[in-house]
């Protein structure tokens, strides 16, 4: 564990807590893409299959349970909670995320570290996570103004993977047989997808203005 990875995990956890705060405090999920939340739940379920078979550390196990539990709770909330689901921007959240799932699964079958079931699923979860935020970014551009908590949520979500890239660079130089090119390339793509959001988020912070994404 290094400072980049720990900070990355804490940033990821913070993004989930901000999203839970938004939904719980405002009883609203306006501006949040249900499709992105479903993709994240799938990412965690596909990646953390080894939760009960390979014990790595208490930290690792606890965080996996938190990520799986929170992502499923958010999907449940947005689908079933009568007050929350009323605020869901159904007509704006129309990105065809099933194509992302199919595409990532096909890619995982072709490009993986070992053609074994757990490895293919792990690669699938890495590729899927890289594109999971697309429905959310599309929704933000369509919905124009973004409320503060939603903006902070998306910012933290993007920032965590950027910190993971620093973690991979650090491990590459400090660990002899470290090779994580699948996660690294996918992480670069994932972070690059946030580039224009980061730019407008920075502008809104610098000018102390409301976050506006050009539609």
């Amino acid at each position: 564990m290094n400072v980049f990875r720990l900070t990355g995990d804490m940033t990821h956890l913070a993004s989930i807590l901000v999203l839970l705060l938004k939904i719980y405090a405002t009883k609203s999920c306006s501006g949040i893409s249900l499709k992105t939340q479903e993709l994240y739940a799938l990412v965690f379920l596909a990646r953390y299959l080894n939760l009960f078979t390979d014990f790595i550390s208490v930290y690792n196990t606890v965080m996996k349970l938190v990520f799986i539990g929170s992502s499923l709770a958010i999907v449940w909330c947005m689908r079933m909670h009568k007050m929350v689901k009323r605020s869901y921007d159904q007509e704006l959240d129309t990105f065809r995320h099933y194509f992302l799932i199919a595409g990532c699964f096909l890619l995982a079958l072709l490009v993986n570290e070992k053609f074994m079931f757990p490895e293919v699923l792990w690669a699938f979860s890495i590729y899927l996570e890289a594109v999971s935020t697309i429905p959310q970014l599309v929704l933000l551009q369509r919905s124009g103004n973004v409320d503060n908590l939603t903006g902070q949520y998306v910012f933290l979500l993007g920032a965590y993977r950027a910190l993971y890239i620093l973690n991979w660079i650090y491990r590459y130089f400090t660990e002899p047989h470290f090779s994580r090119w699948i996660a690294c390339v996918a992480g670069l793509v994932q972070t690059a997808l946030y580039a224009d959001f980061f730019y407008y988020y920075f502008l809104s912070w610098k000018n102390n203005a409301k976050l506006q994404l050009p539609s």
Partner: peptide, 10 residues
């Protein structure tokens, strides 16, 4: 190999 230890990250 890399496949085993790649599971130490979240």
């Amino acid at each position: 190999g890399s496949a085993e230890d790649s599971k130490d990250e979240l």
